[in-house]
């Protein structure tokens, strides 16, 4: 049994990306949260066999990743790790849905293949958008944006506390894992039995740590709520980002932009 080293590193890495200083990072978190929400709704609202109309949406993650100076390799790895679900569940579609759909004169394809491609494309687009939002904004800023967008305070406070403790607990778990490995030389003591007791110990350490942190926060004047930073008004740049992208997404949702571009390139009329 292996504790959470890889996920802890992934969290640390994404937190590091969020501290960069680029034009995208400097935008207000509310603008990025809302633009991403419009993107997600538009992408998932297409019919189940849509493939071509989804292609223009690729532009958004590509632009955000390049302007936000985020490594494509990191994004690709995260998507690859998460992709088995989409592949595993979607791969059966071609077997279950074999109705022929014409895609070109004299050429047809099983509808199941189209729905499979559509599922994979949607998964890649929406997952990339969510990862990029956090990597260019950071979870504390997103939580603050949610508070300003009238999400209940008790939820936002728990969100903030939970995120803070993730790193604390991750480090604690890594220390325990290292101690276990040093004692077992990587051979014994890695089974379910030791893992279960380690988890019990981790929970007790967690509770003890919560008490110590609470005491320390009380001594520093904590009154029960994490004080929000004073909200600033959205700048013109934030509004251009939000309205510009939202309008583009809605146009791409309503107009077959990919098809029109295709016809323009090959010179035929739609």
């Amino acid at each position: 049994m292996r504790l959470i080293s890889r996920e802890r590193q992934a969290l640390g890495r994404i937190d590091g990306f969020a501290r960069q200083d680029t034009a995208i990072h400097r935008l207000d978190a509310r603008a990025k949260v809302l633009a991403t929400a419009v993107f997600l709704v538009c992408v998932v609202s297409f019919p189940k066999h849509a493939v071509l109309p989804l292609l223009p949406f690729v532009f958004f993650p590509v632009v955000i990743a390049s302007l936000g100076r985020l490594p494509v390799r990191w994004l690709g790895q995260r998507l690859l790790i998460a992709s088995p679900f989409a592949l595993m569940v979607g791969i059966a579609n071609p077997l279950f849905d074999q109705a022929a759909v014409p895609i070109a004169p004299g050429l047809s394809i099983a509808a199941g293949w189209l729905s499979f491609l559509s599922i994979v494309l949607r998964f890649l687009l929406t997952t990339a958008a969510a990862l990029l939002l956090v990597a260019t904004t950071g979870m504390p800023a997103i939580a603050e944006a949610l508070r300003q967008l009238r999400v209940p305070g008790v939820f936002v406070t728990q969100l903030q506390l939970l995120y803070r403790y993730l790193f604390l607990l991750g480090d604690e778990a890594q220390r325990m894992e290292r101690a276990r490995d040093l004692r077992s030389c990587g051979r014994r003591g890695t089974g379910l039995w030791v893992g279960g007791t380690l988890l019990g110990a981790l929970l007790l350490r967690t509770l003890a740590r919560a008490t110590r942190i609470h005491d320390a926060m009380l001594l520093r004047g904590f009154e029960g709520t994490i004080r929000p930073a004073s909200p600033r008004a959205l700048t013109r740049r934030d509004l251009v980002f939000l309205l510009g992208w939202s309008t583009a997404f809605l146009i791409c949702r309503q107009v077959p932009v990919g098809e029109l571009l295709g016809h323009a390139v090959i010179g035929a009329q739609p």
Binding site: M1, L3, I4, T157, L162, R164, G170, L202, L207, H214
Partner: peptide, 22 residues
């Protein structure tokens, strides 16, 4: 005082869900 404890409880659940078991 339970506010922090609940935050940590959530973090523990996250850690648990990040745990790989055979």
């Amino acid at each position: 005082e339970l506010k922090l404890l609940l935050g940590l409880a959530g973090a523990f659940t996250f850690v648990l869900s990040a745990l790989k078991i055979p």
